[in-house]
Simulated assay, not measured.
Amino acid sequence: MLAQNSDHNLARVSNRWLKSYYFVRFAVSAVWVALAFTVAKTMPPLAAIMLVAYPAWDALANLVDAQRTGGLSRNKSQLLNFVISLLTALAVAIALTNSNNAVLAVYGVWAVLSGLFQLITAARRWKINGAQWAMILSGAQSALAGVFFVRMAGGVEAIGITNVAPYAAFGAFYFLVSAVWLVVSDILRKSPQIAD
């Protein structure tokens, strides 16, 4: 009984954190996408900063989330996501000195790996938090988008930040769906108690 109460309390605290975390991830991604489609597409220096900042932000977000939910030692998939995202930010900075195609190729590899790690994290969280189907879909779609990026990077099409922006937009959408779904799940979970 004590173990059940402990699990229930852990899930409640964890869900409260995840709701805030997902809403923040949505907001940051939405702002990034808006800037990418407007100001950054005509300002290459800003676009370059944003292209480095996006995986760097992902690394920071994974680090903070893992620390708030048991630490990096208990969240290996997030530890790997943190490392991969940090290395990606560095690789993008280097690729920017080469070409936008090289940047897109780096983004492609990152999208595949980070998508798989996100999928693993969401599957693991399902037991405690539930409502992780959107994060699982997001991880799978990220991996598929990564393959598409790598193929596109090898072509002759002009590449820019707007090629990455739809990927970030889908990420923002899935974070919003996950946050809202957790809110709805909490309401549904509490409703029988209210009826009693």
Rank of each mutant, 00 (worst) to 15 (best):
L18N: 05
S20T: 14
S20L: 10
F23G: 09
F26S: 09
A27Y: 01
V28Y: 03
S29K: 02
A30N: 08
A30E: 11
A30L: 14
V31L: 14
V33G: 06
V33L: 09
A34V: 15
A34M: 14
L35S: 07
L35H: 04
A36S: 14
F37Q: 14
T38C: 11
T38M: 07
T38N: 15
V39S: 12
A40F: 10
T42R: 13
T42W: 02
M43D: 15
P44S: 03
P45S: 09
A48K: 10
I49W: 00
M50H: 01
M50K: 09
L51I: 05
L51P: 02
L51T: 15
V52P: 08
V52K: 05
V52M: 13
A53E: 09
A53W: 00
Y54S: 15
A56H: 01
W57H: 04
W57F: 08
D58G: 13
A59C: 09
A59S: 12
A59I: 06
A59R: 11
L60Y: 10
L60G: 09
A61D: 12
N62I: 00
N62A: 12
L63W: 06
V64Q: 01
Q67V: 12
Q67S: 12
R68D: 04
R68L: 13
T69S: 07
G70M: 07
G70T: 11
G71R: 06
S73L: 02
R74E: 13
N75E: 06
N75C: 04
N75H: 03
K76A: 11
K76G: 15
L79C: 08
L79Y: 00
L79A: 11
L80S: 08
F82M: 12
I84A: 11
S85Y: 01
L86K: 01
L86P: 09
L86Q: 10
L87I: 11
L87R: 00
A89R: 04
L90W: 00
A93I: 05
A95C: 04
L96V: 08
L96H: 03
T97R: 08
T97F: 00
N98S: 04
S99P: 01
N100Y: 08
N101M: 03
N101K: 09
V103A: 03
L104W: 02
L104T: 07
A105F: 09
A105E: 07
A105P: 05
Y107G: 07
V109F: 08
V109T: 10
W110H: 05
A111E: 02
V112K: 04
V112D: 04
V112C: 09
V112G: 07
L113W: 00
S114L: 01
G115F: 01
L116E: 03
L116V: 14
L119V: 11
L119Y: 06
A122D: 15
A123F: 10
R124M: 08
W126K: 15
K127Q: 14
I128T: 14
N129A: 06
N129I: 15
G130I: 12
G130Q: 06
G130P: 11
A131G: 10
W133K: 14
A134Q: 12
A134V: 10
M135E: 13
L137V: 15
Q141G: 12
Q141P: 02
A143G: 15
L144E: 09
L144Y: 06
